[in-house]
Nucleic acid binder design. Structure first.
Length: 419
RNA sequence: GGAGAGGUGGCCGAGUAUGGCUUAAGGCGUACGCCUGCUAAGCGUAUGAGAUUAUAUCUCCGAGGGUUCAAAUCCCUCCCUCUCCGCCA
């Protein structure tokens, strides 16, 4: 959500941001309503003021045992007028709040302007792509029956994952390693609910824009979380923190549920795009001045993880057209997948500035006193499992169809080769 | 699922029976000042949030409705928390 003062005073900025992000922008309707609201508000406040005065008069007259019929009649009349204006005001206000949920966040000034991912800026590329004496296979061929699509299909449907044997073991091992890595980096570990209510989904920005892509439990109006970002960020919804509590650095594991409606046929083989994937997510709440530095710090952290796993990767600064609705700036991490010969996105690290905190009313009280301020929120995957699995399996494959584990996992588990 | 008790400012907590001198007591915490020869104690002052029309006004006591001249207080609906019972990994 954007600041109302900004909407009111700099509508052009809002318009431009929406256009660069390729989002609709109902700012003109909003501005009209804002003016109307202002008028109605002034009117009711004057009336209320008068009614409060009358109330006091009635109360003191009654205490002295004097009749106050005149005041009561006037007040009754005012009450009716307030009632009718308020109805109008409510309609106006409700519509404005609705519209406000559709204004996308404004990209930072250093975000490249562009229509889609072709305008993303590759910031750096790290590590060597592995070379092979044989033609490397895609992960689904190496996995074979260990990726049991017949079973997952009959249990849930297409594009759900069922892993067997060492593939299942590898996933569990990776989750555990990632959790430990983040834990040792000093973040607080959180175990989360994997279901979130409508308010939570709205405050992080998945609703209303992406509601159709969420799994919804109608009976209870609850949603399966599309990312750990939702429960992690909403821990602090509607709260006022102390400045000394910041920065808050938390992480947690969650499965991520996405309907992926409308993405049929695109990159859907194997583990590339599925309805439920596992992810370890990091979230931070920081003072506004520190969010830029925090973003940088988080990208280093993610880069470290990929390097430890021995994966070559590249980092892109997303252009406005590829930037998500709620983000102000985002770096994507992609690892090289030798069997498919392409880059796979495994982490997004984003700064949301005060966009989510305003929706979710996450604030802090400055230690020098003064009004509560919105925190800045950031999040990043550390890391998303299926594509890490795919890359590790493809990049570590041997000619005999086995998979060599990266050193960090081999040392951790005592197992060097899978298969 | 059943029964009961609750939800009041950053936190704790009074106020609800009897609607109006509540602009929500008091405490904790925080900030500033004083005192103090020492990371303490004491004293004083300030301190809920939001809105624009800003030395002011209005709104907000879980959410939404209703009754009333007037609602934290009465009525209705819903949500959440706790305790006990039931069911269950």
């Amino acid at each position: 959500m954007l600041d109302r003062v900004l909407l009111r005073n700099e509508p052009d900025k809002v318009r431009e941001a929406a256009e660069n992000k390729g989002e609709p922008c109902p700012i003109d309707e909003w501005l009209e309503l804002d003016e109307k609201r202002h008028q109605l508000l002034t009117e009711t406040e004057d009336l209320r003021k008068r009614r409060n005065e009358l109330s006091k008069e009635v109360s003191s007259l009654k205490r002295e045992g004097i009749k106050a019929d005149g005041q009561i009649i006037e007040s009754r009349d005012i009450g009716k007028r307030i009632g009718s204006i308020e109805k109008d005001l409510n309609v106006t206000y409700t519509r404005m709040s609705e519209l406000e949920l559709y204004f996308p966040n404004i990209p930072d000034t250093d975000v490249p302007i562009g229509r889609d991912e072709t305008s993303n800026q590759i910031v750096k590329t790290v590590g060597e792509k592995p070379s092979f004496d044989h033609a490397p296979l895609p992960h689904w061929e190496i996995l074979g029956g260990l990726l049991d699509q017949e079973a997952s299909g009959s249990i849930a449907g297409s594009n759900f994952i069922l892993l067997r044997g060492w593939a299942a073991w590898l996933q569990r091992t990776l989750i555990s390693w990632m959790m430990d890595f983040n834990f040792r980096a000093g973040m607080e570990e959180i175990w989360l609910p994997f279901i979130a209510n409508r308010e939570s989904m709205t405050s992080t920005g998945q609703i209303p824009k992406l509601e159709y892509d969420m799994y919804h439990i109608e009976k209870d109006d609850l949603f399966l979380v599309p990312t750990g970002e939702v429960p992690l960020t909403n821990i602090y919804r509607d709260s006022i923190l102390q400045e000394k509590d910041l920065p808050i650095k938390i992480f947690g594991y969650s499965p991520c549920f996405r309907r992926e409606a409308g993405s049929y046929g695109k990159d859907t083989r194997g583990l590339n795009r599925v309805h439920q994937f596992e992810k370890v997510e990091m979230v931070r709440m920081v003072k506004p001045d520190n969010s830029e530095a925090s973003l940088t710090e988080m990208t280093y952290h993610v880069g470290n993880m990929l390097e430890l796993l021995g994966l070559s990767y590249r980092v892109s600064l997303l252009s406005t057209g590829d930037l998500s609705f709620a983000a102000a700036k985002c770096y994507d991490f992609e690892v090289w997948s030798a069997g498919q010969e392409k880059w796979l996105e495994v982490s997004s690290v984003s700064n949301f500035r005060d966009f989510q905190s305003r929706r979710g009313m996450i604030r802090y009280k400055p230690s020098g006193g003064g009004k509560p301020r919105y925190v800045h929120t950031l999040n990043g995957s550390g890391l998303a499992l299926p594509r890490i699995m795919a890359a590790l399996i493809e990049n570590g494959q041997t000619e005999s169809g086995k998979v060599a584990l990266p050193k960090i996992l081999a040392e951790r588990t005592g197992i060097k080769v899978l298969g």
